[in-house]
């Protein structure tokens, strides 16, 4: 199989049954069914663009290849409190407004440098005492980042191609050279 095909198939597997795009997708709605948050197609794209900036495609697949933004949305929909979900949506709106004001375009249309600078600036001001960014915006970004990384490091791609994960190790080696990467 060609590498590209492999990755494409992987993305589908990683997405899992629950994340399969709905055939009856409403225009302008997110591509997966969500019960508790109302996310538009544009917002889904924004989360995908942020995730891709955190885990970019290099010589290995990036966030979009692995559909990590859909994992982020599933986690927001199922695992966060109403309050967190509200803050997430509010923060997402504020993030959009900020980019618009700063660059006059949407996040996905900014160049890599602008995108990276924006996210790094939020990272550097994440201390709750610093008010450069609103609490909601920081909550929004924090959730996107945490779940992007969670989704990445627990994806089949990562656990089989980037590190060595074995379902049945069969042994415990207490003195193992670090050269061989292993997920535990």
């Amino acid at each position: 199989m060609h590498r590209r095909t492999v990755i494409k198939n992987l993305a589908l597997i990683i997405g899992g049954a629950a994340l399969l795009p709905s055939c009856l997708q409403e225009k302008g709605k997110a591509s997966i069914g969500l019960k508790n948050v109302d996310v538009s197609a544009d917002q889904e794209k924004l989360i995908g663009d942020i995730a891709e900036t955190i885990i970019p495609k290099t010589n290995t697949p990036g966030a979009k290849d692995l559909q990590l933004h859909l994992f982020v949305l599933k986690m927001v929909d199922d695992c966060y409190t109403k309050k967190d979900q509200q803050d997430f949506m509010t923060g997402m709106g504020q993030f959009n407004d900020l980019i618009n004001k700063r660059y006059g375009r949407v996040f996905g249309d900014c160049d890599t440098k602008q995108r990276e600078q924006t996210l790094l600036s939020i990272e550097q001001n994440k201390d709750p005492k610093i008010t450069t960014y609103s609490t909601e915006l920081k909550i929004f970004y924090g959730i996107v980042k945490n779940q992007t990384i969670n989704g990445y490091t627990t994806s089949k791609y990562f656990m089989t191609k980037q590190v060595v994960y074995e379902l049945v190790p069969g042994r415990y080696n207490a003195f193992y050279p670090v050269k061989m990467k292993q997920a535990v």
Partner: peptide
């Protein structure tokens, strides 16, 4: 730093 472990004990 050059040591790790293999398997999940």
């Amino acid at each position: 730093e050059d040591k790790y472990y293999f398997g999940r004990r």
